[in-house]
Design a protein around this nucleic acid. Structure first.
Length: 466
RNA sequence: GGGAGCAUCGCCAAGCGGCAAGGCAAGGGUCUGCAAAACCCUCAUCCCCGGUUCGAAUCCGGGUGCUCCCUCCA
């Protein structure tokens, strides 16, 4: 079995093989940092995090670049409104972004380049495009000459003439052609850099071309982003990059589907933007991550309370299985894991692998995880369980969760006061003072923990009732 | 007007020609001082109409409904 993935460029699933054996070069368009991210941005981050993790699981070295667009019209606008500097706003929202992604269990990329720190490569790329005659200068602005790139539209499958018909393309007298787009915009003040064409700043698309090629070379293996980036952003990236280098820019284009809220696209005008941090606060980051992973990354995803609450319950079940194993470990008998168990674990991993190899089918991979949950409880409840058996199941959980990233990282040790209440309740139960025991259970619950009585003694579980 | 998708149990969701995964919720049972957790059992012929096929949720045609892109956007 080999990994196949859906390539937007060809419109079908293809076997995946990186250009250089063993090494995957991957670039995913990052946020423009002028606001807190919403759950759609979060989905993209999680989707490509899992893709990256799966490639690593499969033994590839992954060089993963995820950029920050820290200079842009939108940031400048916010700066004007708040009186802050562009730089301060960018810093603030980069920090917020990293906080949000950490809550979602997203691993750090290999490189996190910022546009403002790569003006040199951007200017170089624009210079090459001008030299080749595919870009032109107009009064301090530089535009890409779309008609000089015959393949324009190949990713979005939209012929140039169709793009014009019916579309509201901004008419700008400075441009030779309505579809020409800015590579460099004349500007002044604290948001301008020197260039051969005068002071200015990069246009909207050039940074991704310049930074991805700066870190990964002229040809990347995987380029990803939300499906709304297909046109014009990625189309323009292809045009700029390939016009400059003459070689294929990205070999596989991956795009995640959109998140809608109550049937509608999130937008500020509708007032239905849901922020990652708000969902994290109410349901926890892992619940949101599960919510994402429960749907294939290319499918549309509708956000609503019932779905996210269901995800939270599912994560608690996953936690419960690991907790049961940990709890069962001390009482297990010395010995190796039975062969039948090892075979069952292998079968579960085979199912998991087949699912992930099929265009990163995380919903099916989760099915395998829940098979592991059932196995875990069967082992944990077996009075004759061996230490080897418990450890084998735990090891498999850790191994598969390295891909999904759903289990809580730290062992959750309850605070001393809660532990004292648990001990008190046990004493009451032994004395058959059940009224007192129940009162103590309610008290523990109020502090955020549920007590479960097991043959091994009471077990605590963190609860997230809101 | 052009382009890309989607429609499967109360909710979410896999499935890509051969007896309809999984999660959440629900009902019954076991266990428990009672619970909780867990375990067992129950719970769908796949939007509609045609067609292809021995056989279709899966392919083709036609409807209907919905989403996204063509404008900054994950």
């Amino acid at each position: 079995m080999a990994l196949v993935l859906f390539n937007t460029m060809t419109g079908r699933k293809e076997p995946f093989a990186p250009r250089e054996p063993g090494v995957v070069r991957m670039y995913v368009c990052g946020p423009t940092v002028y606001n807190y991210i919403h759950i759609g941005n979060g989905r993209a981050a999680v989707a490509f995090d899992v893709i990256r993790r799966w490639l690593q699981f499969r033994g590839f070295e992954v060089i993963y670049v995820h950029n920050y667009t820290d200079i842009d019209d939108k940031i400048i606008r916010v700066a004007r409104e708040t009186g802050e500097t562009v730089r301060a706003i960018a810093e603030r929202f980069i920090a917020a972004y990293e906080e949000d992604l950490a809550a979602l269990g997203v691993l750090e990329p290999t490189h996190r380049p910022r546009v403002t720190e790569h003006i040199g490569p951007i200017v170089d790329l624009i210079r090459r495009l001008i030299e080749r005659g595919v870009a032109y200068v107009r009064d301090g602005d530089v535009y890409f000459r779309v008609q000089k790139f015959p393949e324009y539209g190949k990713l979005s499958k939209q012929p140039i003439d169709r793009l014009l018909a019916g579309a509201r393309v901004e008419i700008d007298a400075a441009k030779e052609h309505p579809l020409d787009f800015a590579l460099w915009k004349r500007s002044e003040g604290d948001v301008a850099w020197d260039s051969p064409w005068g002071a200015g700043r990069p246009g909207w698309h050039i940074e991704c071309s310049a930074m991805s090629m700066h870190y990964l070379g002229a040809t990347l293996d995987i380029h990803g982003g939300g499906q709304d980036l297909i046109f014009p952003h990625h189309e323009n990236e292809i045009a700029q990059s390939e016009a400059a280098t003459g070689v294929t820019f990205a070999r596989y284009w991956l795009h995640n589907g959109h998140v809608t809220v109550d049937e509608e696209k999130m937008s500020k005008s509708l007032g239905n933007v849901v922020l990652v941090r708000d969902v994290v606060r109410e349901y926890g980051g892992r619940a949101l991550r599960f919510f994402y992973l429960n749907t294939h990354y290319r499918q549309p995803l509708r956000f609503h309370r019932e779905a996210i609450a269901s995800a939270r319950s599912a994560v608690e079940r996953l936690d419960g299985a690991v907790a049961a194993l940990n709890h069962a470990l001390p009482g297990s008998v010395p010995g190796e894991a039975p062969a039948a168990l090892l075979e069952a674990l292998r079968a579960i991993e085979a199912d998991f692998t087949a699912a992930m190899d099929d265009d990163f089918n995380t919903p099916e991979a989760l099915t395998a995880m829940f098979a592991l949950v059932r196995t875990a409880h069967a082992v944990a409840q077996d009075p004759g369980r061996t230490r080897g058996a418990v450890e084998a199941v735990l090891a498999r959980f850790r191994r598969l969760d390295a891909v999904l990233g759903l289990l809580s990282a730290a062992e959750d040790v309850a605070p001393a006061d809660v532990l004292a209440l648990v001990a008190e309740r046990e004493a009451a139960r032994r004395a058959r003072d059940f009224a007192r025991a129940d009162a103590l259970r309610a008290e523990i619950r109020a502090r955020g923990y549920a007590v479960e009585d097991t043959p091994e003694g009471p077990r605590l579980k963190r609860v997230s009732r809101s």
